[in-house]
Design a protein around this nucleic acid. Structure first.
Lengths: 214, 214
DNA sequence: TAGATTGTTAATCGATTAACAATC
DNA sequence: TAGATTGTTAATCGATTAACAATC
């Protein structure tokens, strides 16, 4: 049961963008596309696109290009969007509630089950159709439902300990908004750290150095 | 007036993380650190850290390491955090309001001036201390205050046109939450695209392929 | 068949790591 | 001075691009 050959991180991080563009093309009614046209649209090279897709076995056809429906299907499968993953959200503060109210979890492959918060004032309320439960009931919930992932919108500080505890109880992935770099913790599960401030600082820097950059 | 030699994008994207870690170290009372210790803490190699810092002229000292205060000072200057940049926010919907209420713009180098929205029901309200103004007054505001950057939390669709218009009126950078990849538009100014869904899809994929990944 | 475009191998480019002389 | 650790050059590694034969 060998893994065919580790796909590089660079490729994996391009997959969602490919998927997004293919969905857009489909919505525009396009039925097929060549690596050259897609490259032009996305600001990549045709070569790179073909290399990337071939990491997963070619799904194109010589002389024709790539069928949009097939591509969407394949990329969706690779991303695991139809694997029926489940998630919970921890921390129904401002950020947590903003996600509950607005973010389309299903579009990214997750069914959000509910949220948890330590503040009793929030218990029982719903945001975006998701119920907030009391943190004291978390362990029992994990035991009963085994969510695949947890969204961490709790305050920083106790994040590493909570992450550890979640992983110990079977959570297999973390979407981390806490500002702590959890991937360093050796948790043994994938972590996606979201650092909005890093992004804005980068912009601050680029504004300073920019003359006529791409 | 030659540029000393383009610093690679990979390095630039590590700068905020360096800055963040240095701030944490300072808060912990640490006064100096070697590339080796910092590497260990951040999960990088000492070599890489020294290479990175030397893109901007060495700010270390042989046999001693790096002084935390100096490092914070230098990284802050490189990032332009004290350049007094200003920004406005466009679109005071759920996401926009979440940022207004919670996000610390100043910590990333920007003074947020105010927000704009097309919905008259929001005009005059404040969120997080920031006033929402009517979109019809935007042009006059740009004329009068020349903000450096704009935060785009408007619905997708009209994003490219609005981005174009902002840039034409002097905006020098965009923090883009619209879901459209604006950097492709050839706007001629730096754009930071925030795609939360890409991040979550990546996690979905990694959960599927994970066995015992780092 | 001729034209188009993939899949795939080889060449290039850039980024990371290793090594070590310089120096505090 | 001896020890530590940088700054910097050289070696390695990986990712992107180019090229082209395979084939629809």
């Amino acid at each position: 049961m060998e893994r065919k050959q580790e796909v590089s991180k660079a490729v994996i991080q391009r997959l969602p963008r490919y998927y997004r563009n293919i969905c857009e093309l489909k919505a525009e009614g396009v039925q097929r596309i060549s690596s050259r046209s897609l490259a032009e649209r996305m600001g990549l090279t045709a070569s790179q696109i073909r290399q990337d897709f071939n990491c997963f076995g070619g799904f194109g056809q010589q002389g024709y290009g790539y069928n949009i429906d097939k591509l969407q299907e394949e990329l969706g499968a690779i991303l695991g969007l139809r694997a029926g993953r489940t998630a919970i959200l921890l921390g129904a503060g401002n950020l947590g509630r903003a996600l509950l109210n607005n973010f389309d979890f299903a579009a990214s492959g997750f069914r959000l089950l509910c949220a948890f918060d330590a503040d009793p004032a929030l218990t029982g309320k719903t945001f975006g159709g998701y119920e907030v439960r009391d943190s004291s009931t978390l362990d029992a919930f994990l035991e009963a439902h085994h969510p695949d992932a947890a969204v961490l919108t709790i305050p920083r500080g106790n994040a590493p300990a909570i992450a550890r505890s979640l992983v110990d109880r079977g959570v297999r992935g973390l979407w981390n908004f806490t500002g702590e770099d959890l991937h360093l913790e050796g948790l043994g599960v994938p972590v996606e750290n979201v650092h909005l401030s890093d992004s804005l600082m980068t912009l601050c820097h680029l504004i300073g150095t920019d003359t006529a950059e791409e």
